[in-house]
């Protein structure tokens, strides 16, 4: 009978000394082989990132975009559908957007384009900042104190469904200047989204944590800072993402009605001037800014809530 190649005892030499030593050597070699194989399969960290970027994920995303633009092109340039002639084709938008001498005055080479963008970003950040600075503490207070909840929450719930644009007339009449009224209209929906999600966040914290904190001798302030605030964090960040989204919604509405600048104004002005490609440029720009700001919040959230991540690699 021949020795079986898979028998670890058979991997060593034939003399007695070697044989007593061979199981360990086999084990060592086995570990090394495993690690080598793992290394080859997984590749380096950068290799994995590259694979993710050029791999199937990105390929499908690109495919989606291409299909979207093709459909847009077919609808506007190839088919002459009734009333669709108002919608600029992707070619017209792209030409205008990248022109050094744009027909309607807006392109990546005109300073005015960036002025509108900056004005809008500044308004959104200011409104978002105020909404969060006021909304998170209010939400925590509502979740923490029953009396305060009964006193305030019904009012919040009645005010919340009122569309921000309904506030425009009084905002313009009462607040000084265009800027403060646009910011006010922008922050309303964000504020309510933040308050509501923070409140839900506080409510989502299991009673066990409060009981444990109690047993461990946490004072009220420690319960607030060490249990309620971190415990509500996942919901708060969901709220912040929603808040950022609705900030952009309301901003554009406010700028259309009350603004003299900003992307909402750019779109409305383009409509009045029948500079239709500018509308699409404004829309795409808003889409990009909205996406980037939400992604930024997700990043910050993931970083602050590293404790949520599953897995053993600390």
């Amino acid at each position: 009978m021949r020795t079986q190649p898979l028998d670890p005892m058979a991997l060593g030499g034939s003399d007695a000394d070697d044989r007593s030593d061979s199981p360990r050597r086999y084990a060592d070699e086995r570990e090394k082989a495993l690690l080598d194989a793992h290394q080859r399969a997984a590749g380096s960290e950068t290799g994995r990132v590259r694979q993710m970027l050029v791999g199937s994920n990105l390929r499908y995303t690109a495919l989606g975009f291409v299909a979207f633009v093709i459909v847009w092109y077919i609808l506007t340039d190839l088919l002459t559908l009734p009333r669709f002639n108002f919608l600029p084709s992707p070619v017209a938008v792209f030409t205008q957007w990248t022109s050094t001498d744009p027909q309607y005055g807006i392109s990546v080479f005109t300073p005015i384009y960036y002025e509108h963008i900056l004005v809008s970003i500044r308004r959104v950040l200011l409104a978002f900042g105020i909404a969060v600075a006021a909304g998170v503490p209010l939400g925590i207070l509502l979740g923490w104190n029953r009396t305060f909840y009964n006193l305030v929450f019904p009012i919040v719930e009645l005010l919340r469904p009122i569309p921000p644009l309904a506030w425009v007339p009084f905002a313009v009449l009462i607040l000084p200047g265009v800027e403060s009224s646009v910011v006010f209209v922008t922050l309303l929906a964000a504020f309510f989204a933040t308050v509501l999600n923070t409140l839900l966040g506080v409510w989502s914290i299991s009673d066990d944590y409060f009981r444990a904190a109690h047993c461990l001798g946490y004072r009220r302030i420690d319960v607030l800072m060490r249990v309620i605030v971190p415990g509500a964090m996942p919901y708060v960040f969901t709220g912040l993402q929603i808040a950022m989204g609705v900030s952009w919604f309301s901003l554009v509405g406010g700028e259309m009605i009350a603004g003299r600048s900003g992307l909402g104004f750019l779109i409305f002005d383009a409509y009045m001037q029948v500079a239709l490609p500018n509308i699409v440029i404004g829309m795409i720009t808003l889409g990009l800014l909205g996406y980037l700001s939400s992604a930024g919040i997700r990043r910050v959230g993931a970083w602050l809530m590293a404790w949520q991540e599953k897995g053993r690699s600390a």
């Binding site: 299991s206 944590y209 009981r211 444990a212 109690h214 047993c215 461990l216 060490r226 249990v227 964090m233």
Partner: peptide
């Protein structure tokens, strides 16, 4: 409830947002 009695629950009530050291040391 008081700090002279402590309950170890059926389900874990370790604070998920604190490291083990903080969980143990913070009380």
């Amino acid at each position: 409830p008081g700090v002279d009695r402590i309950v170890v629950f059926q389900e874990t009530a370790l604070f998920p947002w604190m490291t083990l050291l903080d969980n143990v040391a913070y009380g």
